[in-house]
Write a protein that binds this DNA or RNA. Sequence first.
RNA 1: GCCGAAGUAGCUCAGUGGUAGAGCAACUGAUUCGUAAUCAGUAGGUCCGCGGUUCGAAUCCGCGCUUCGGCACCA
Length: 643
Amino acid sequence: MSDITSHKVNIRLPDSSIRTYDGPVTGHSIAADIGAGLARAALAAKVDGKIVDLQLPIEKDASVSIVTLKDPDVLELLRHDAAHALAEAAKELFPNIQVTIGPAIDDGFYYDFSREDPFTPDDLESMETRMREIVDRDEVISREVWEKDQAIQYFESVGEYYKAKIVADLPNNEPITIYRQGEFTDLCRGPHLPSTGRLGKAFKLLKVSGAYWRGDSRNEMLQRVYGTAWRDKKELDGYLHRIAEAERRDHRRLGREMGLFHQQEEAAGMVFWHPNGWQLYRTIEAFVRTRLEEGGYIEVKTPQLIDRSLWEASGHWDKFRENMYSMESEEKTFALKPMNCPGHVQVFRQELKSYRDLPLRMAEFGSCHRYEPSGALHGLMRVRNFNQDDAHIFCTEDQINVETEKFVRLLLRIYSDFGFDDVKAKFSDRPQVRAGTDEIWDRAEKALKGAIESIGLDCELNPGDGAFYGPKLDFVLTDAIGRQWQCGTLQVDFVLPERLNANYIGQDGDKHRPVMLHRTVLGSFERFIGILIEQYAGHFPLWLGPVQAVVATITKEGDQYAEIVADQLSNAGLRVRTDLRNEKIGYKVREHSLAKIPIILAIGKKEAENGTVSLRRLGYKEQESLVLADAVTRLRAEASIPV
RNA sequence: GCCGAAGUAGCUCAGUGGUAGAGCAACUGAUUCGUAAUCAGUAGGUCCGCGGUUCGAAUCCGCGCUUCGGCACCA
């Protein structure tokens, strides 16, 4: 054992000053040296960027900063400590409970417990109360390093078999760190706060759910308690407000209120589109169709129900049979298509193709069925029957780069038109098990990467996550309240053209295999519409609004003129309704505002006499008086699909 | 699929073994009114489904379905 105490330790502080200590020094001592105030505020030390316990000796030269509540990184520490306080509370309240793991997560923490009886809402409340008591007790949190065998023995002796298992599965050379607070002893990597009092009280337990031990559905189910923790009450309230905001935007609620769609148990996971919702759907489809036409795509339509033999040839029967709907007829087995690609290859194969036909971009708004597990269904976001804005680009390897670039530009433009400007790409390269030679993979990966680079898109790497048939790019957009949605994708496929025998005649007169690029922008119409509803909280931009304007009369004297106004707007291509009911204008305004109609045109005696309209926009109180012809010109421009 | 919770009028919800309720929406009538609720009246129920316990079930028990929150899954 070396004598570390004889070494001088140089500590560089954030202001670049250097303090030299004779031997190891703790973050706590450094803070105390700097000032009593900092020592009181100190929660942890950041040593070369890594957060460690305040009491942990720093044994060699390092850059050190003292972590206080001001440091945003402290949140993870607080949340992890909150998880420990929860575990301590649970152990005190429920003697037979076993603790497992309890990490910090985005916005909070959870802890997985093993216990016979399910937690009740009352249990949640009593655990939270006990956590607050533990904070008041201000128990010192201390760290120890144990031998592996000692730790296993200890946890088995106290009936913590999950913990013992976790320790047993740790690598032999790894030090086993044990944290104690009060009576609670836990295996934990740390770091932690100096004492439970430092956690503060800006936390809240939120919900209980099931979770598989080690995330594997073959294992037993544990009970997971979720909570949130913040630096102060204001941050906590802000978070709770954000949750409420997300709820307010819930597409299932808005979908019902706005008369867009409904779902019912006889068709679980499927959508009944109502007139307003279907109008929205058609607008989106028409818009995407114009973009595809501009992008040089051709559109096709292929069968829903296809004989099993084709699915066997494509490989789907083998891999996804469990998730395909199939039926017997004419003593054959048919399956509803889960994807459009095999159908597209059939269209491609119909006439002998030349290299001059490539790239051939074949699009279909295809209706697909997939059996999704019942627990996965969620409004429009996860359904069993969905429609993709699907296309397959048949091209040569050399064309992958340029086609990728074209596609990404098309995708970014479409997203931007829908109001999504924050887009990230995720690049997944070759998986362990794959088809195709390394040379082909090299070229394909290079082509995809090159395209992303030339566009300058923010790109994250997902190593080894590509499909077995080729590398892929996934596109993630961020919505108005910061949530991320993976929508678009582009996948390079070397396998399907082979399996389904697609080929073209090259310049050399020989047959060659095309590469297929599978690509979608929206992903599924259903899901994308769900995202749009939540993005806009139902307040769609004018071009998307199912009903764009309502012409509402103030008295009967306006009826005739209101019809003229509505006709003119309708002739200009707007989706417009009249409201001639015998109701007060205030009542009509309220009703159409709640229905989220973007434009209300009020028509009274004055407007009828002057040939004007009084225009009111959703979300605004002000009105604007316009000459009818001007209103028509202006609204026509605003209401048409983006060009 | 798994764990937990829920399912009562179109919607939000009350109703713990004894005649199924409220508010809003709907419908009818009156009111002709200037930008987020005019007044009055009427109608509306397989209390998720099936079975059981009971003199009697929305209510208690069992099975199933769907939904919700997670977990697992997502070609």
